[in-house]
Amino acid sequence: MQGFETLFEQVEFILLAGLVLILAYLALEHEDIVYAAFFFGMMASVVAGFYLLLEAPFIAGMQIAVYTGGISALIIFGVLLLPRAQDSTLEVFPTSRAKRIGVLITSVVMILSGILALLFPWPESFVSENINLSQNLEELAKWLWGSHGIYVQMTALIILTALVGAVVIMKMEKAERLEPIKGEFGIEAETHPAYTETQEEEQ
């Protein structure tokens, strides 16, 4: 039974990892941005499977509720609001020099994070070897709400700041739209030739 469980867990990990990597690659490389946004949503919901493997049921639920339900919906909505984002000529970089610089920075970041992932002796630096497999949410709630409540309030303040900033930027956007209508050099401030002609005819 124990051997079957380990085998099943490893097979599930490899399946989920392959799915996540394929979906992440498609989200970055698919030429149609609408499909890319949908692939990102699917990737975010498959990542929740890893949290189930890692004994974190609440984080799996929160991943599906916030990432799949909220963030990917916001990205799909942004694609609908910005029709120029669907321009497929945006997928080709203009100069090969800029692309080479991007690949260089990517390889530097990947080397640094590869040292952290593969060469750094993580298991030796741990305090204890045994693994805590408790899944009760009470400990997590006690950590978050009981002993570290200041983090929760700081998160609330950050989200309040983001909301206020979003609304202020939308107000600036409206003021910029009003400018051609009622501004000093706006379209309507000038005398309309066709309109004045009809007025003269009436008189």
């Binding site: 996540v20 990597l21 992440a24 941005i33 942004g78 970089f93 991007g102 990517t106 994070s113």
Partner: peptide, 25 residues
Amino acid sequence: WYLVLAFILIGLGVYGMMVKRNLIR
């Protein structure tokens, strides 16, 4: 295994941020 998966995901994300022109991507 988890660290290698996270490493590949971070590499893919940095590649997307550095090389793509489309802001949504």
